[in-house]
């Protein structure tokens, strides 16, 4: 359940940014999670429910954007969309690829009062 640590980090980043901007309340938090980031989005949502308690995010709307994966085959340079880390290149069947997108784990923005 590393998602709880991730959730606490999200709360820290959002709270610090809001405090630095003299905000009193966070209305919305936007998070980007790549499908290959190693974070289970449902588990993160569950963890955030407890992590936000008694913080500026307590009643904030949490928007989680799933980032699709994109990879480039190191063998034939084909760009494709891997479903997981053990995907194959659809053209040459190589397992050797670089991930371009899909590992994101970012706090994108907050909306504050």
């Amino acid at each position: 359940m590393h998602e709880f640590s991730i959730a606490l980090n999200i709360v820290d980043i959002a709270s610090k940014t809001a405090t630095d901007a003299s905000a009193t309340k966070i209305n919305e938090v936007e998070i980007e999670v790549g499908i290959l980031s190693g974070v289970v989005i449902e588990a993160l949502e569950f963890a955030l429910e407890s992590a936000v308690k008694n913080t500026l995010l307590e009643n904030a709307k949490i928007i989680i954007n799933r980032i699709k994966a994109r990879a480039k085959c190191n063998n034939c340079n084909t760009e494709f969309k891997p479903s997981d880390l053990i995907a194959k290149c659809p053209v040459c069947s190589s397992f050797d690829f670089e991930i371009i997108n899909g590992r994101e784990l970012r706090v994108k923005s907050i909306n504050v009062d």
Binding site: I6, N9, I10, D12, I13, A14, T17, A18, A21, S22, A23, T24, N27, I31, L105, R106, V107, K108, S109, I110, N111, V112, D113
Partner: peptide
């Protein structure tokens, strides 16, 4: 006064502190 909706772009890696 800051009593209105303000969007703050953060774009920060969740694990940056670690």
């Amino acid at each position: 006064s800051h009593d209105h909706n303000r969007k703050i772009e953060i774009e920060q890696d969740v694990l940056y502190k670690n």
